[in-house]
Computed example of a mutant assay.
Amino acid sequence: MPFHPQIAPEIFALRPDFAALSIHAEHVRNGPSDTHSAEWLGNACRELDAAPWAEAHLASWRDAYRAFGAKPQRTPCSAEALRKRAQRDGSLPAINAVVDLYNALSVRYALPVGGEDVVTYAGSPRLIRASGNEPFETVSEGAPKVETAEQGEVVWCDARGVTCRRWNWRQGIRTRITEHSTEMWFVLERLDPMPIDALHEAGEQLIAGLRRICPDVRTTQLYLAEARQISA
């Protein structure tokens, strides 16, 4: 079944250079972290400075966060948070095979990468600026909690509520990929100066990793940019 994310015009008004690669994966057989996923995570930590655009790309994300009122020093984008953890600890936490794969690619490319369980979605995802009424299901001190997005905040959401706050800062608990997930959606998000070719390269690496985990996986790609939506 097609899964078509939508990006609201106000996002491109905020950052005309924003582009994303959407990858819908079906017939996935996920599993626990293993030697392959440990290798992906280890290699990513050793390649922290491999991308020449890495620091400038993360700086662009800080600017994007400030533009909608967030404080990136307190709530950094997902790629920067992972990078800081890798720098501090020399390693990244193992979650499950698929999450390890996209976390490794996020660090390697200094690129925010999100992974979601499609079965848990109410309709397709939308990237919008919040009205201030959208609920966000999370956990606080080990207990379920429902927060509300701030007015003007950039969020991914579906018909039920916010699935990721502050663009790509924190994912909600409802849509997380688990070892039992079989249909998944990934979004790779870039700003200038990261090359578009590098975005597509990261997408191909993600698909290659998914095929290593599950050779029978079926994937569909959609390139999302201002006035452009191209399927592959």
Results as ranks from 00 to 15, higher is better:
residue 139 V to S: 02
residue 169 W to R: 02
residue 14 L to H: 09
residue 96 N to Q: 04
residue 12 F to W: 05
residue 146 V to H: 05
residue 196 I to N: 10
residue 103 N to A: 11
residue 199 L to G: 07
residue 105 L to C: 10
residue 18 F to L: 15
residue 7 I to L: 04
residue 216 D to Q: 13
residue 57 H to Y: 04
residue 79 A to V: 13
residue 118 V to L: 08
residue 22 S to M: 12
residue 146 V to M: 05
residue 6 Q to I: 05
residue 173 I to W: 07
residue 104 A to W: 12
residue 85 R to L: 11
residue 133 N to Q: 11
residue 17 D to F: 14
residue 200 H to Q: 09
residue 83 R to D: 12
residue 227 A to H: 15
residue 228 R to I: 13
residue 118 V to Q: 05
residue 64 A to D: 01
residue 158 D to A: 01
residue 116 E to K: 14
residue 204 E to P: 01
residue 114 G to Y: 07
residue 59 A to W: 08
residue 200 H to I: 10
residue 62 R to I: 06
residue 40 W to M: 07
residue 30 N to T: 13
residue 82 L to R: 08
residue 203 G to P: 00
residue 174 R to F: 01
residue 162 V to Q: 04
residue 150 E to W: 14
residue 99 V to L: 15
residue 147 E to Q: 12
residue 112 P to N: 03
residue 72 P to H: 01
residue 199 L to S: 06
residue 61 W to P: 00
residue 165 R to E: 03
residue 54 A to G: 05
residue 52 P to Q: 09
residue 189 E to V: 13
residue 66 R to A: 10
residue 138 T to D: 01
residue 108 R to D: 08
residue 13 A to Q: 15
residue 49 D to W: 08
residue 172 G to C: 00
residue 131 S to F: 14
residue 173 I to K: 13
residue 68 F to S: 01
residue 216 D to M: 10
residue 221 Q to T: 15
residue 172 G to R: 00
residue 167 W to L: 13
residue 88 R to F: 08
residue 95 I to W: 14
residue 32 P to M: 14
residue 88 R to C: 04
residue 14 L to K: 10
residue 197 D to E: 15
residue 122 A to D: 09
residue 12 F to Y: 06
residue 229 Q to K: 12
residue 144 P to S: 11
residue 74 R to T: 12
residue 38 A to N: 06
residue 144 P to A: 15
residue 111 L to I: 01
residue 92 L to R: 10
residue 65 Y to L: 13
residue 117 D to R: 02
residue 14 L to A: 11
residue 115 G to L: 06
residue 187 V to L: 15
residue 167 W to I: 14
residue 4 H to T: 12
residue 178 T to Y: 11
residue 36 H to A: 15
residue 5 P to D: 02
residue 103 N to K: 13
residue 9 P to C: 05
residue 17 D to P: 03
residue 169 W to P: 00
residue 137 E to L: 14
residue 202 A to M: 08
residue 141 E to K: 15
residue 72 P to M: 02
residue 78 S to A: 11
residue 34 D to V: 07
residue 34 D to Q: 13
